[in-house]
């Protein structure tokens, strides 16, 4: 059964001193699913995501990512996932092509593979003319689309997206989600955080973290029914307002 799951966690916990950042969370993410991971600032999203990416060891509990144990096989995990965040994704002072060359190299892909894939991505994003342009001179929306392409460059099983669309215009934001859909249709599992509540509606299932725990996890439709709300925005507000943890 577990082979069908992209991510499983069981009472996953992370403590910093006597502060419990992530408090016994248990959930599963199916293969090929778009999984929305929501929560207020400081609810513990980033900490949980770091544990799943193999960047930080849990205090207790279990978790597997792509069938790999987060305690013992974190190096293998890093090879089978892609990661993109709003803050850091591409090198501003390298060109579009150089960035792709670099990331392909990191994952040990052959030159032929990198070349072919680069050509495909440039064609797909209509960036052929910008191939030799420094990334910093691209508009933010293009950068984010490019960053996503780079994150899935090595065809990872799971891709983690940390607020990928912050500040992006509404048209590009939708183009970006279109890329997510295409990747998911191709079998890649997408694990995404966002502050745009309309984007929560695009996910297959959504979890909402409050004070280090997962307080709700279901499809957007059923969450709205359950909380008697017209939109995910309302669901989120109803849940997050309960938060006791004001600041951390």
């Amino acid at each position: 059964m577990s082979e069908q799951k992209a991510i499983t966690t069981n009472k996953l916990t992370k403590k910093f001193g006597d502060f419990t950042a992530v408090d016994e969370i248990s959930f599963e993410v199916n293969k090929g699913e778009i999984f929305g991971f929501l929560g207020a600032n400081g609810a513990g999203k980033t900490t949980a995501m770091r544990m799943l990416c193999g960047l930080s060891l849990p205090t207790s509990g279990e978790a597997t990512v792509a069938g790999l144990n987060v305690y013992k096989e974190n190096e293998k995990i890093k090879r089978s996932i892609g990661y993109m965040s709003q803050k850091f994704s591409l090198y501003d002072d390298l060109t579009v092509k150089e960035n792709m060359r670099f990331y392909g190299g990191i994952y040990g892909k052959s030159n032929a593979f990198i070349k072919q894939k680069t050509a495909y991505i440039l064609d797909h994003l209509h960036l052929e003319k910008e191939a030799n342009v420094l990334v910093k001179s691209l508009p933010l929306g293009w950068k984010q689309k490019l960053a996503f392409s780079v994150a899935v460059f090595h065809a990872p099983e799971i891709v983690f997206l940390d607020e990928p669309t912050g500040g992006v215009d509404p048209v590009t934001r939708r183009e970006f989600w279109n890329m997510i859909y295409v990747a998911a249709a191709g079998g890649t599992t997408v694990f995404v955080t966002t502050h745009y509540m309309d984007e929560a509606e695009y996910c297959d299932r959504v979890s909402i973290m409050v004070d280090g725990r997962i307080d709700a996890l279901d499809t957007p439709i059923r969450l709205k029914e359950k909380f008697n709300a017209a939109s995910m925005d309302e669901v989120f507000l109803k849940l997050a307002r309960k938060a006791a943890r004001a600041a951390d």
Binding site: N41, G167, L237
Partner: peptide
């Protein structure tokens, strides 16, 4: 200037 960028929905409200 962009006081609510990167801030969650509750804090924005």
């Amino acid at each position: 200037d962009e006081p609510t960028t990167g801030v969650d929905a509750v804090s924005r409200k």
